[in-house]
Deep mutational scan, measured.
Amino acid sequence: CHSECLGNCSQPDDPTKCVACRNFYLDGRCVETCPPPYYHFQDWRCVNFSFCQDLHHKCKNSRRQGCHQYVIHNNKCIPECPSGYTMNSSNLLCTPCLGPCPKVCHLLEGEKTIDSVTSAQELRGCTVINGSLIINIRGGNNLAAELEANLGLIEEISGYLKIRRSYALVSLSFFRKLRLIRGETLEIGNYSFYALDNQNLRQLWDWSKHNLTITQGKLFFHYNPKLCLSEIHKMEEVSGTKGRQERNDIALKTNGDQASCENELLKFSYIRTSFDKILLRWEPYWPPDFRDLLGFMLFYKEAPYQNVTEFDGQDACGSNSWTVVDIDPPLRSNDPKSQNHPGWLMRGLKPWTQYAIFVKTLVTFSDERRTYGAKSDIIYVQTDATNPSVPLDPISVSNSSSQIILKWKPPSDPNGNITHYLVFWERQAEDSELFELDYCLKGLKLPSRTWSPPFESEDSQKHNQSEYEDSAGECCSCPKTDSQILKELEESSFRKTFEDYLHNVVFVPRKT
């Protein structure tokens, strides 16, 4: 048989008469490798580009789960590009990614509803959504962080984005990388972005840091009482949809009607710091009717980097990364020049730590249904340095008659930039024990000054392991946590139920 035959053949030295091919099969003959313009397919066939392209389009058009959109890589027609490569849609070739590779997620039936953290986790790592997304989240724990972890990498949506009755959302900033909504599939009414009845939605994105392009379709905003109209108009300008909307697409009466839409800028007039305090004062603000001013709200939190936005980490279910302080308005003076500047002394802060701070007014709604208010920009203030805590785990070892090696770990709280350490030492008198000992005694162990690591005695271990207080009263049991108490109650309830079950099964009433 021919060298490319495997198993047997019907005619000697003829690659077209093989029972099976050793390498690849091409047009009725066995070959060692697939010549151009053919590609290896499933490690035994040679196919042309049209064959591989037909497989790709067949799966793409069917949208069946589990099928493969075949691509070409290293002269092979394979189910998908290997790690580190992405497909070129024009020629199906796998090309190296520039940075992290995109991950295209194809949605069944063309859309997916995100109504819980669990459903959001199914899209973790996706960068391109081939379909439409509907966000409908009523509640949950730590929602802002969970949504950002699972949806934060999405850069492109081919269909539309719909935010509907998501009472738990305060902001859409968890879509931190969303840059493009194509609108290839539109919501009824030709809408590519749809926001309806979101009672706590206050911000779409921080438009000073976020760009969003909507290729096709219109915007729809109705019944978002805490979303200011200025935020919607800003989205029109940034996304390129200005002029597409009709009169009733953006409701003037049901958007922002319960919001404090600040239209003035508060400026800080005085800032002073110490290692654990920050004193702030800002310019006074009074609405047209000074009785509408209820006070100020001061927001602050630790910020290692200057990239904080107002609604980071917030949701309507209680999660809030900001510390909020309510401040009463100052006494009002008739003389504008003698107006008191409101302020606040922030206490209990960490030394040498940068804080993000902003302040906003708290006002009631005027009778004319106009909203007044003022808010400052987010500023960054760093507390002063102070003395560091003591170095940890000092170790001293003498390696000769004239040297001592000293080692330690950095302090747990540096409280500033540590530039150097101060080492103090003092000579001590020799131990009298060394002169009084009889060095001729056998088995004498000389006193040693070398360091030995501390260890816990058996008594201390027994005390720590004991669940009861000892007789001397030195140790006591740790208080039980809520989960331990709940577990004990469940076990007790189970024992009672099981005992009742045994009584009912074992003891049967005697027939009379």
Rank of each mutant, 00 (worst) to 15 (best):
K103S: 05
V104G: 03
C105G: 02
E111A: 00
T113D: 05
I114Q: 01
D115I: 08
D115C: 08
V117A: 06
T118M: 09
Q121N: 03
Q121S: 03
T127K: 15
L133R: 01
I134S: 09
G139N: 04
N141M: 06
N142D: 12
E146S: 03
L151R: 02
L153Y: 05
I154P: 03
E156M: 14
S158H: 08
S158L: 15
G159H: 04
Y160F: 12
Y160C: 14
I163C: 11
R165S: 04
L172K: 02
F174Y: 13
F174L: 06
F174S: 05
R176V: 14
L178R: 02
R179W: 14
L180I: 15
G183K: 03
G183P: 06
L186D: 14
E187K: 12
I188N: 03
N190T: 14
L196Q: 12
N198D: 05
N198S: 10
N200T: 12
L201G: 01
R202F: 03
Q203Y: 15
D206I: 07
K209W: 07
Q216K: 05
F220A: 13
F221C: 13
Y223Q: 05
I232L: 13
K234G: 13
K234C: 13
M235P: 02
G240W: 07
T241H: 10
R244S: 05
E246D: 13
E246P: 11
L252C: 09
K253T: 14
N255P: 06
G256H: 08
D257Y: 07
A259R: 05
C261T: 07
C261G: 04
E262G: 02
L265V: 12
L265R: 10
L266W: 02
S269H: 13
R281F: 15
W286I: 14
P288K: 04
D292P: 03
L294K: 15
G295W: 12
M297D: 03
Q306V: 11
N307M: 10
V308N: 01
D312H: 11
D312T: 15
D315P: 14
D315Y: 07
T323D: 08
S333E: 11
Q339M: 09
Q339N: 14
H341Y: 12
L345Q: 04
M346A: 11
R347P: 09
G348W: 10
L349V: 05
F358S: 10
K360H: 00
T361G: 04
L362C: 04
L362N: 02
V363T: 08
V363F: 09
S366P: 05
D367K: 06
R369Q: 10
I379E: 08
Q382W: 10
T383Q: 01
D384F: 09
P388E: 02
L392T: 03
D393H: 10
D393G: 11
I395Q: 07
I395R: 13
S398F: 02
N399C: 11
Q403A: 12
K407W: 14
